[in-house]
């Protein structure tokens, strides 16, 4: 009897404590860890969300750039913070790849994933003077010159390319550049023949006709490049891309997660945010806790196949 009473009391006390903290939440400034440097896509999405969250949550949300190790440093930092809902992290696809390569000690399991924000396919780009006019031209040439085609890679290793290479049994010479801002000039200058980036990273060069899009690596065509066929349409069944979302340390109370989740839902459906993403040629892809967690688990498995 005593012990039951005791445990009930303890349970009640816990609910009370948890209840109080969740009901008061947020009571102070929230930090949003961005694992990449200012200026990139991840940073601007993070800043846009933080800016909008101010009005939704009634408290400031401050972006905290914590860069290094292709995102590993910032995401590991975010995973290790107190699970009180005051430190959130922008989680990127690297959380699915880096741990499997032994380059990050934390993985998606160390987070409670709150919402996925965007999902963008990769687009295959060549310079305007290139002899290639569709993906099959490229594949044929790559087969002919085994490893001779030079690919400007935005990351090391490059999973966009690896997906295509594996599917088609081809090999390109992937030169690791430091992101799209180095890879694109390299293709423009004719030093490398092809690159793959997300639409937002190359929209202006595509629109200006400096770069030719051979195909988009998604299931369906996208609004920003309506005239660019998918690889699937061209008989190459490869789709890949990148995604971002927001996570909290894994022991964060569910009540806080749901408060934040609802706030992010409202932000993502607001005109301002839609507008912002539209301008950056990024596609909003809102997934809730459960869907997002499943999505990441599947993607982790898919990447695992490429890594091995």
């Amino acid at each position: 009897m005593k012990s039951i009473l005791k445990s009930t009391l303890i349970a009640a006390a816990f609910t009370f404590v948890a209840g109080v903290s969740a009901a008061d939440y947020p009571a102070k400034t929230i930090r949003l860890v961005v694992p990449f440097s200012p200026g990139g896509g991840t940073d601007s999405v993070g800043r846009a969300i933080a800016d909008a969250a101010k009005d939704e949550l009634g408290r400031n949300m401050i972006v905290m750039n914590r860069t290094g190790g292709s995102g590993a440093v910032g995401m590991s930092f975010g995973a290790q913070q107190k699970p009180d809902g005051y430190t959130l992290t922008v989680v990127t696809r690297e959380i699915a790849s880096l741990p499997q390569m032994g380059l990050m000690q934390h993985d998606a399991e160390d987070f409670k994933l709150i919402r996925m924000v965007n999902l963008d396919p990769a687009v295959v780009l060549v310079s305007k003077d290139s002899p290639f006019n569709n993906i099959n031209d490229l594949i044929a040439e790559a087969k002919k010159r085994d490893g001779g085609l030079k690919f400007a890679s935005t990351a090391k290793p490059n999973f966009y390319l690896m997906a295509l290479e594996k599917d088609q049994g081809i090999k390109l010479n992937a030169i690791p550049y430091n992101g799209a801002s180095e890879a694109i000039p390299s293709v423009l200058g004719g030093h490398t023949q092809v690159t793959m980036v997300t639409p937002g990273e190359a929209l202006s060069q595509i629109r200006a006709g400096q770069l030719k899009a051979l195909g988009i690596m998604s299931e369906e065509r996208i609004a920003f490049l309506p005239d660019t066929p998918t690889l699937k349409e061209q008989g190459v069944d490869v789709s890949t891309g990148t995604w971002r979302g927001i996570g909290a340390p894994k022991d964060t109370p569910d009540a806080i997660i749901s408060t934040l989740g609802k706030a992010f839902d409202r932000i993502m459906s607001s005109e301002d945010f839609k507008n912002f993403m539209q301008k950056g040629a990024m596609t909003i892809h809102n997934l809730d806790e459960k869907e997002f967690t499943e999505f990441v688990a599947t993607d982790t498995k898919n990447l695992g196949v490429l890594i091995k």
Binding site: S37, P38, G39, G40, D43, S44, A48, A180, S181, E182, I184, P185, L188, G200, L203, S204, Q205, R207, A208, Q210, F276, K279, G280
Partner: peptide, 27 residues
């Protein structure tokens, strides 16, 4: 070219994009 030359212009690029402008020759 629409590509940043250094860290600061990387952020400026973001600002241009947010304004709905595509930096590059079309600008």
């Amino acid at each position: 070219l629409g590509v940043p030359g250094d860290a600061v212009t990387a952020v400026l690029l973001g600002a241009l994009v947010i304004q709905g402008l595509s930096p590059g020759p079309l600008l």
